[in-house]
């Protein structure tokens, strides 16, 4: 088998995940795209391990480690998302903008989610 097939598939999967991380609004969907990126890396590791016929099978061992770390990451990430949702009433990344620099002008860079969202966020904050 040509090494190009798994390598190109891994690159394309990684870029799909990259698009998902950048474009999605729901935090859970962002985590899901991160999983896609991690899987692309795993495919690369396995393919190169099979190609090199490594004595220590470093690629496959690292793949197992990556899978375990991904499981830990998804657990912590979902716990954080649930906490944010409980405190703010939303899991939309666009609305979590408390750490912006220009706090006086909350929607300067985002014309689309206008005042209504900010008011809603404040309401959720007050309710929490």
């Amino acid at each position: 088998m040509h090494l190009v097939y798994p390598a190109v598939l891994a690159a394309l999967l990684f870029c799909t995940g990259l698009y998902g991380v950048l474009a999605r609004r729901n935090a859970v969907l962002v985590l899901l795209s991160v999983e896609l990126m991690l899987n692309a890396v795993n495919l690369n590791l396995v393919a190169f391990d099979v190609w090199l016929r490594d004595e220590l099978h470093a690629g496959q061992a690292l793949t197992l480690f990556t899978i375990a770390i991904a499981a830990a990451e998804i657990g912590i990430g979902l716990a954080i998302v649930l906490l944010v949702h409980r405190n703010r009433g939303t899991a939309d990344i666009d609305r979590l903008r408390d750490l912006r620099e220009d706090a006086n002008d909350p929607d300067a860079n985002a014309p689309r989610p206008a005042g209504g969202d900010a008011a809603r966020g404040e309401k959720a904050e007050a309710a929490a």
């Binding site: 935090a27 859970v28 899991a91």
Partner: peptide, 10 residues
């Protein structure tokens, strides 16, 4: 887990 996350965040 992801499905649970989606459902718990309504």
């Amino acid at each position: 887990l992801l499905l649970f996350g989606l459902m718990l965040t309504k």
